[in-house]
Structures are given as structure tokens and as C-alpha cells.
Design a protein around this nucleic acid. Sequence first.
DNA 1: TAAACTCGATAGCTTAAACCTATGCATGAA
DNA 2: TTCATGCATAGGTTTAAGCTATCGAGTTTA
Lengths: 303, 303
Amino acid sequence: MNLRDLRYVCAVAEHRHFGRAAEACHVSQPTLSGQIRKLEVYLGVDLFERSNRIVRPTPVGEEIAARARILLQQAAEIERLAQAGRDPEAGALRLGMIATVAPALLPLCLPALRRRFPRLHPGFVEDLTDILLRRLADGELDGAVIATDPGDAGLKCLPLYSEPFLVAMPKDHPLATAERVAVADLKSVHLLLLTDGHCLRDQALEVCAMAVPPGQIDTSATSLETLVNLVGAGLGLTLVPALSVRPGWSTDPGIVCRPLDEAAARREVRLAYRTGFPRQSLLQQVAATIREVVPTALVTPGE
Amino acid sequence: MNLRDLRYVCAVAEHRHFGRAAEACHVSQPTLSGQIRKLEVYLGVDLFERSNRIVRPTPVGEEIAARARILLQQAAEIERLAQAGRDPEAGALRLGMIATVAPALLPLCLPALRRRFPRLHPGFVEDLTDILLRRLADGELDGAVIATDPGDAGLKCLPLYSEPFLVAMPKDHPLATAERVAVADLKSVHLLLLTDGHCLRDQALEVCAMAVPPGQIDTSATSLETLVNLVGAGLGLTLVPALSVRPGWSTDPGIVCRPLDEAAARREVRLAYRTGFPRQSLLQQVAATIREVVPTALVTPGE
DNA sequence: TAAACTCGATAGCTTAAACCTATGCATGAA
DNA sequence: TTCATGCATAGGTTTAAGCTATCGAGTTTA
């Protein structure tokens, strides 16, 4: 049995005339007759009663035609669904972001994404890089904004922006007097870090060319916000990604941020996705949109 | 798009593996891959994400597979429906009967039909021959028990039984003394008839070789029962089909029935049906069943 | 009563497409 | 590096859906 066969049955049931039904189906009358006959043999029932002048559906034929009509409507529905799905800028797009990016980037890119892709329903998840990458690989996410090379096979990246680290310190800290901070000076200060798993923790340590300072585990924070408050309380210094710096910090917790003298003290923020993901062109446009809303100084040439 | 294609989509969505899905569909892997690819091109959407080691339905693919599953179930339902309809002894069978047959024949044949065709749901309509034949031709009835040649093109008949007419008269009527009544004697009696349209009226007149007796129109009855009561009241004589004779008549209205000396004074009761009717074999068995329950003396050799 | 007409069925052929086997190619594991 | 896995591609075969032409039963018209 076939969708075509069912179309033929419906046509004959409607027109009660093989010739006109064939015309409606855009096939010749013998073709339609043959297919109907074949279906009748296959089903083992007569669907139509062909007395000489008139064609009449049998009770079974009537019932089958009625159900076939419904079925064909649903088939058409599926095609319409596909048509809607053909628009890659429509539907849900599930994105992940690492915790040191999301609070700074979301307020910037969300309005832009809404404007640029009005039919898109973006969803956001904030988590550690490893967890985001696992969910991405599992198909739970369509993309993830991270700051490290995913390395993982089957994933690719689109560059978003290159973000320098700033040193955050209390207003009255000795290093705050200079315009820039020398990386070498950081070795002698008390560096506050995020908890394990945050890429920013590892990157901060790398910039300072330090291993985990023993005995500092108690000062690990779970968010940049907390970290900055700890700095304001005079517990130490920390590195803050440029995009996360807030003007309010200087007035409220009394924090100043100074750039480093090392140009390499930065992180590359990128959008990771599965190589097989079918809406890659959408992701490229999403990446472009994000680059547009990030301060131009940070944006890398892009793909 | 095709039912087969949808089956393939469901299989891949379920197994998440082209090879195993192909196996489940009893086709080779390239065949299945090709068909899926073709459907994707036709629909204009990727249904599956083939990253190297894993196959995953896209959101659209997932949705389409879910709907396809429902659709395929309904298609299977149609086939099951046909299978049930394949049994010609099941379902409704709409039969008509003329009014001078139904009251006598129904009580005889209904129990037998129920026993012989337990899955059949026979329905009965009692009306005049012409109306029954029109409804038969229109497809509102599947068969009609009548006592005349339908003549109408497109209809055929199965013989049921050959029914002699008896003369019904009051107990004390002069003709009641003889064992048989001579047809010639009927010319001089007052013959009571059914209203116009009943075949029995025409046949009674034919037996008596009479035209409509003028001035007798007021004595026309609409049922045999009434006619017999009129006879009992002494208003005249009438012809009664053998099967309609009731033993109670001799005690209650005081009627006797006598056979005629003319063997041709009878009617041929038959089952008419459309030549194109698909369940003719069922009708033949129904006719045979009716012949079995009619007193053997009346039954004709049959088809 | 014959001729024309209607309409579904049949015959014979053509073409499209579904299917097969064999092979390629990319990726991940030993 | 080699092997294994798994989907895609290539080329050829077969099924079946399609066509035109024609038949034949049953009506209608002349």
C-alpha cells in the first residue's frame, strides 16, 4: 500500500467516476483503474462496485476512503512541518556558556540576537566547560560559548572575540598607581581564584606562570562577582576578563582594574559546535552577530 | 513522499544506525541511505545528523519521525479494516421485502440467517416493489425479496420459492365445500384486493383473468391481515399466498383457504440484487438459507 | 434495430525509481 | 600505522507505474 494508492481511492470515492478521478490525479484512466484494481487485490476486498453506468464505493471502500483522507492530510502536515523546519533561523537553538562569559555577554548579545533572528528561540545554559562540551557532544546543546580549545574530536569552533585579562585590586593597592601592571609583579601578590573546573582559574594561573598556590584553597570562589567582592574586602588580587569589568566596581567595592603589560594575557572566546550539526550556517550568523555587539577592540578577524 | 520513506525514517530514528535500520527494513544499507537522502532533498530539511560515529535525528527529524509513526499505525489500521471487510459474511446486509412476503417469511428466515451467518447484521425494509427496486438501484439496499421480474437493467435475481395462491373465504361460503376451487368460479365472486402498487393485487387479477372491477376501489386494503379480516367479515373473497396462510384464521375470523385447480396460479418469489454487487456469493448463500426454511413443497430447484 | 456513445478493463510498451553488490572515504580504535 | 566501523557513492538489474491504443458491455440516439 502506498500514499499514492490512497490518493487514488479518495479521488474515485469523491468523483464516483474513474475518468474524472484520473484527471484529478493527473494520470490516465487505465493507470488509475489498474492501481485501484491492484490495491483491491492486495487488500483482498472490493473497494468500489462498478455497475455499468455508476461507480459506488462499497462499505469497506467508503470507510477506507474516509480514513485515507485523514491520513493524507497528516502526510501533508508532515510536509508542511518540513517546510517550516527548512528555515534554519526558526525554532529552538540551545546554547551553553561558561560562567565567566554568560553574565557579561548575555545582556549584550540577547537583544541583538532577538532583533537579527526574530523567529529563533534561543535557550541558554550556564555551566563549566567540561559539562557544556559533554552536553554538546550528547546533542543536548547546539552550541557552546567557551574559552578553551575543545580538542574533542567531532567539535569545531567559530572565533568570537579575544579578551584580555585585567588585574582587579583595591583602590589603594600599590600596583594601582601604575597605568599597567607587569606580569612579573603578580608573582608576589595573593591571587584569588575561582573553584576548580573554571577555565579562568587555569588561565589566570598560566598568565602568572604559577602552579596552584598551596594553602589558598579556602579563598576559591564560584563566581566572578564573589571574587571581586573578595578583592574589595582586601583578601587579595585577581584577574578579570575585560568584558566582565563593571564601572560600578570602582565606586561600590572600591576596585580598580589595570591592564597587563603582556599582550598574550588574554583568552580566546569561541563558539563550539558539532561537526555534523545541520544548522552551521545559522551558527556562523549567530557568531557574527555576537562579534558585532562586543566592543570592536576585542573582536578577532573572525572566520 | 511515501509510506516506505516514512518507515525508513522511523527505523533510522529508532535504531540511530543506518545499517541496523536497513536490516530492520529488510533492505540494504545503501538503499536506505539513498532513500533517506532523497527524502531529505525532497523535504528540503536534514532529518538526521550524521556525525561520524553517531546518527542523531535533528529536531525536525524527531518531530517528523513521531508523526510518521502515528501515520504508519493508521495505515496498518486501514489494512486491518480491509482484512475484516474481506469476510463477506460480516457487516451489514440491507435487504428489502415486499409487504406480502415479509410478515410470513421474516419469522422463518431470520433465526436461520442468524444461525448461519453469526457475523452478519441483516437489516430489513418493507415496501412496495417499485420503491424497493429504486432503493436497490440507488445502492441503499443490497438485495430485495420481490415476486415479479425486476426487468430493470443492472439487476439480477436468485429464485427463492414458488408460492401458490389459495382462495380465502368465509367458513360458510359455497365454494368452501369443495377440496379445490376452480379458477373459473372466481369470476363470479366479489374479489377483495390490496391497494395499487402491491404486486399481489395485479397477480390476483391476472389469475382471475379480470381487469380491475369497477366500483370496488373502496374495498382495497393495505395489508393481507386487513384483507383477511374483510373476508372474515363477509365482504368478499381474496387470494392469499400459501406462506401467508395462518392456522388461526379458521378459528378466529372463521376463514378457510382452498387451493386452486390451476397450477399456474402462483408467484415466483426471488431475491433481486445489483449485477455489480461485490458480495453476490453471500447473497447466494442467503438465498439457499431461505430456501431451506421454506416448506419443501414450495421450493424451486434453485439456481 | 442499428449506430454512436460512454466508461471501465485489457494489452503492450516505455520509463522511472527502488533495489542490489561492490567500493570509497572519513573517523576512531588497536 | 593498520584495522574496523559506518555512511556515501557508483553502476547495473528489476520491479512497477506510467502511457497510448483498443476492447467490450451497456446506453442512448437516430
